[in-house]
Design a protein around this nucleic acid. Structure first.
Length: 882
DNA sequence: TGGATCACG
DNA sequence: ACGTACGTGATCCAC
């Protein structure tokens, strides 16, 4: 049998896992997240690869032969956090239980152990797989040795053979060393040649081959500047290459034979999993055993529960107490008017399953409607709205596992109950496992369904204390209890209420669009000389750039870019371009907004019921789906008319819209404590004009519209985490000009500059940034050695406190507004939220009071060093409420 | 299922 | 110099 060796870069994988997962602890308070992630990865690799030999290599301490030669090596690297370094002994303990070899060697890095071992394996005819998160490993790749690099945390890996490296870099594996020698690596403090990045380095290597060749042919290099730099830093390059070279003959005291691996023994591993509280992994061990024994016993059937029937419900009605976990199981993703499959209820030692047929049970419905009876739920809004469609009231929700998971980590994209449970080492089958997915989706028989729903309720019940504890440690309890949870109810009411849309209006617009589109199509075919699918970027690209030979400004991975900004540059090169631009614009209106919206109108009520997603964005904003009512056109008049179809649901009422003016820049002024910006807002200045005057050094009266437009773009850029390149793209100016704008901006708004710097620094130190209401976003890549990832995290560190605080503020305003409307017994209704704007429908006699109340509540939601300003407008449709 | 494109703040 | 603006969702095409 062929021998197959797996070498795992222990430090690298543990690091990835540590930053990818929340700080889990076992009951002794040991941190286990890195070990957990490492173990998941390990088990997956063992299963998939079925190796005959396994070795995990670790770094040993700080001093290596590299630091001796070059004292600044890894000098910029931040210290390993204590929470992580404490986990290395645990990992080794675990590997011992698996009977997997691990090794470290004082004076050498894990890289060198891996390099040496893989060289030996190669010489002995093994095939080897190296698992790491470190791109440097690619230099070890050969026909017999492959490298799997982790992607997106640790859940995915990307496999590299010589061919993949050639495809991606047009380099041989050995040239990876030369690549690093030329470009250096800031995270390891390897200098390289200043001014040479990946692009330039690749170009040089494609031309000359190696660092030595580049240095020898320095005089042939194109570009005078570059020549000089190469000549001046030849020694740096040589040293950098040396530092980047992984040793392949380290004096290892371990041999290939020592790494032999046979299947692990579950009984030996289980106690360690037990100690670390890896419950889901324990189950996985159990499952493997079960499979081996062919016993097929499904885990988790030990959960006992009672199915409510007419016969037993009197007995069990008395067990409905406070608090209990309630899971409302809804069929399908869209819960508006959707079937409710049943309700699961779990308490300390009561577990009930109420099938749909038994839901008409007064004891239950009274209990559900009783706000004094506390309920812990998963996805409060879904539960509330789905029941509301069945005319069942759900009140008294005081915990929501989905929202708790979200406030604990808004970057996490998956807040399914089964995944939350897994994070807390509880086993819970996923909905997908129970119902299947896609075409195979079906509702299982009553027994299985009941068990699943009850297990979910039970999981929510057991999660409550632990998730609350986690929220306390993260200082997000107030955010959860005072903001997100009450907001869920407000949003649920808005969704259930819906917004009226006039189908006839959309029909009419659709007819007009259809005519215009077909005449555009004819014109485009004529000019192209051939019929093709204008909606296909591929076909369109071929027509424009191959057939018509228009200049290519930009390419995408898959071919030519045909995006609007490219087409606009080509506007005057061919008469087909304006037609295509208009076709695109109208086509979008037709498919997304006319046809798309019509599909969502309920025929019986003429209403659209969107779903606001309260747990998707990383910043704390809401999103809206099925349909998305947060991106209804407004910028162009043709699209804006779509809003004429959005009307009040009662005759004689009005649509009222109230939006925050410049809320993000006001927040920036506040958190940056920038005197200049604060003063501008306090004086009620037009902020873009003022910025233009300050940046261009002219009087406000002398600001031209171009200057104002540019200043506006700079202001946007500032909020997004400015970069000269981004600004230059946006304004269609050179990068140098963009850089100058930014420099001048920072000279004027020094507080903003200081904020940008400190925000990034604090994120690097703490690992996260926060909003004014303590919403927290973790930035695991903020110290990454990957420039892209790190830069992205840095911009996020600047932007998230601003965008997130704006989200906090409008959410607060919504909760307050709902309360004030209720107290004042107003008939007016809140319908929609569009990030900085609230939309209401208002009876004529309440227009006065609403025009006063809405701005008052919105402006006072949170008191800042600058005033918040809200503009209000109303009209017979959303179109006129501008 | 993922990429390209485009609608919004 | 490295490569980009921040945050979303829907539609269409092509694999």
């Amino acid at each position: 049998m062929e021998k197959k060796l797996i070498i795992i870069d222990g430090n690298s994988i543990a690091n990835r896992a540590f930053y990818a997962l929340p700080l889990l602890t076992n009951n002794e308070g040991l941190y286990t997240n890195a070990v957990y992630g490492f173990t998941m990865m390990l088990m997956r690799i063992l299963e998939e690869e079925k190796p005959t030999h396994v070795l995990v290599a670790f770094d040993a301490g700080k001093v290596t032969f590299r630091t001796e030669g070059y004292k600044d090596y890894k000098g910029t690297r931040q210290k390993t956090p204590g929470e992580l370094s404490a986990q290395f002994p645990l990992m080794k303990e675990l590997l011992d239980a698996f009977s997997i070899a691990h090794y470290e060697l004082p004076g050498y890095e894990a890289d060198d152990i891996i390099g040496t071992m893989s060289a030996q394996a190669e010489a002995n005819g093994y095939s080897t797989l190296i698992v790491s998160g470190d791109k440097d490993m690619l230099q070890l790749v050969s026909d017999r040795t492959k490298v799997a690099l982790t992607r997106k945390g640790i859940s995915e890996t990307e496999l590299y053979s010589p061919q993949e490296i050639m495809d991606k870099y047009q380099l041989t594996p050995v040239q990876i060393i030369d690549l690093k020698g030329l470009m250096g690596d800031t995270s390891d403090n390897i200098p390289g040649i200043p001014g040479v990045g990946e692009k330039t380095a690749l170009k040089l290597l494609h031309e000359f081959g190696t660092v030595e060749d580049v240095l020898a042919h320095a005089s042939e290099v194109k570009g005078k500047k570059l020549q000089e730099k190469i000549a001046a830093h030849a020694d740096d390059a040589r040293m950098s290459k040396e530092l980047a070279t992984i040793l392949r003959e380290a004096p290892l005291a371990i041999t290939l034979e020592n790494t032999a691996y046979a299947a692990y023994v579950a009984e030996k591993v289980a106690p360690v999993f037990e100690r670390f509280a890896f419950k889901s992994l324990l189950e996985r061990l159990g499952m493997n055993e079960a499979e081996a024994n062919e016993s097929g016993a499904a885990s988790g059937e030990e959960i006992a529960y009672v199915t409510i029937t007419e016969a037993n419900r009197d007995e069990w009605g008395a067990k409905l107490v406070s608090p209990m976990a309630v899971v409302v199981e809804v069929d399908g993703d869209n819960y508006h008017g959707a079937p409710v499959l049943g309700i699961g209820i779990a308490g300390e030692d009561v577990r009930l399953y109420v099938p749909f047929a038994e839901m008409n049970w007064p004891t239950l419905t009274d209990w559900l409607a009783d706000s004094a009876q506390k309920k812990w739920v998963y996805d409060a809004k879904r539960s509330q709205v789905a029941l509301a469609w069945q005319n069942i009231t759900l009140e008294g929700i005081c915990f929501d596992a989905m929202l708790a998971s979200y406030v604990s980590n808004p970057s996490e994209t998956n807040h399914q109950l089964s995944d939350i449970a897994a994070r807390y080492q509880m086993g819970l089958p996923s909905d997908e496992a129970v119902y299947g997915k896609g075409a195979k989706r079906s509702i299982p028989d009553e027994d299985k369904l009941g068990l699943h729903i009850v297990r979910k309720a039970d999981a929510v019940y057991r999660l409550h204390d632990r998730m609350e504890q986690a929220m306390k440690e993260e200082s997000v309890c107030e955010l959860f209890y005072d903001l997100e949870l009450p907001l869920a109810t407000v949003l649920g009411d808005m969704e259930k209420r819906g917004v009226q849309v006039e189908r006839a209006r959309l029909d009419e617009m659709g007819r007009v669009l259809l005519e215009k589109l077909s005449s555009l199509t004819v014109g485009i075919y004529e000019l192209a000389g051939v019929e093709f699918n204008i909606n296909s970027p591929k076909q369109l690209g071929e027509i424009l750039f191959d057939k018509l030979q228009l200049p290519v400004y930009k390419k995408t991975k898959t071919g030519y870019s045909t995006s609007a900004d490219v087409l606009e540059k080509l506007e005057h090169t061919h008469e087909i371009i304006p037609l295509i631009l208009e076709f695109r614009q109208l086509g979008k209106l037709q498919s997304t907004y006319i046809e798309g919206l019509k599909k969502e109108i309920r025929p019986d009520t003429s209403k659209i019921h969107t779903s606001f997603n309260q747990a998707v964005t990383a910043t704390g904003r809401l999103s809206s789906t099925e349909p998305n009512l947060q991106n209804i056109p407004i910028r162009l008049e043709e699209g804006r008319r779509i809003r004429q179809a959005f009307v009040p649901s009662e005759p004689g009422w009005y649509i009222l819209s109230a939006d925050y003016s410049q809320i993000e820049l006001r927040i920036l002024a506040h958190i940056a404590r920038d005197e200049n910006l604060i003063k501008a807002f306090q004086e009620g200045a037009d902020i873009h004009t003022r910025t233009a005057a300050d940046v261009f050094g002219v009087a406000q009266e002398d600001v031209t519209s171009l200057m104002r437009r540019q200043a506006k773009a700079v202001n946007f850029g500032i909020v997004y985490g400015i970069s000269d390149y981004g600004l230059s793209q946006n304004l269609n100016i050179t990068r140098k000009q963009a850089a100058e704008f930014i420099e001048r901006y920072f000279a004027v708004f020094q507080g903003v500059k200081r904020y940008m710097e400190t925000s990034v620094l604090e994120a690097k130190k703490a690992g996260y940034v926060t909003t004014l209401l303590s919403r927290r976003r973790y930035l695991p890549d903020i110290n990454s050695r990957n420039f892209n990832l790190r830069s992205f995290a840095e911009r996020t560190a600047m932007n998230t406190p601003i965008q997130g605080t704006a989200a906090d503020i409008i959410k607060l305003a919504m909760v307050n507004m709902a309360k004030r409307m209720e107290e004042a017994q107003l008939a007016s209704r809140m319908l929609l939220q569009v990030h900085d704007e609230l939309i209401f429908e208002v009876p004529e006699h309440e227009l006065d009071v609403m025009c006063r109340l809405v701005p008052e509540v919105m402006e006072s939601a949170l008191v800042l060093d600058v005033p918040l300003k809200v503009d209000v407008n109303y009209g017979p449709s959303w179109y006129e409420a501008k």
